[in-house]
């Protein structure tokens, strides 16, 4: 269902409770206003928090088990991995994960310190941040 259909649906539910039933043109008008409202809500930079993704970057010397170390924590904390990219260049390990922290068992700062603490043990640099900077600094 697209946004317009959704708005029409909502509008008709509303007007079903109103009698006498309004004309099709009134229905359209109400739907148009609802669409406008929905678009305002969903405008760029103001996405619902449930869709706010974060970027986890791990940098350091490669050794077995790094990916496991961090995906384990994410799994334990119910953080969904949306995307993952990992490369090794001259023995240096770089992993970038796009994660969805909205369903996490802990809040964002705690998740960050859990990952950082693990990073300390694995001797790699760990950075967790919402995707805002990546989006806004690289794309106009």
């Amino acid at each position: 269902m697209n946004r317009r259909q959704m708005a029409l649906e909502v509008a008709s539910i509303l007007v079903n409770h109103i009698s006498p039933a309004p004309s099709q043109s009134v229905l359209e008008k109400v739907a148009a206003e609802l669409i406008l409202l929905a678009e305002k809500e969903l405008s760029a930079g103001d996405r619902p928090s449930s869709q706010r993704l974060a970027v986890l970057t791990v940098l350091g010397k490669n050794h077995p088990g790094i990916v496991h170390a961090f995906s384990e924590i994410l799994a334990e904390q119910n953080v969904d991995i949306v995307d993952i990219n990992q490369t090794i260049l001259h023995g240096n390990f770089a992993m970038i994960m796009i994660v969805d922290p909205s369903g996490a068992k802990v809040d964002f700062p705690s998740l960050k310190s859990l990952l950082k603490e693990r990073g300390g043990r694995e001797e790699v640099g760990v950075f967790l941040q919402y995707e805002d900077l990546m989006r806004e600094l690289n794309r106009i």
Partner: peptide
């Protein structure tokens, strides 16, 4: 991937 590696590392 929604961001390239270069973009992320630059930030």
């Amino acid at each position: 991937m929604s961001y390239t590696k270069r973009e992320v590392l630059e930030v």
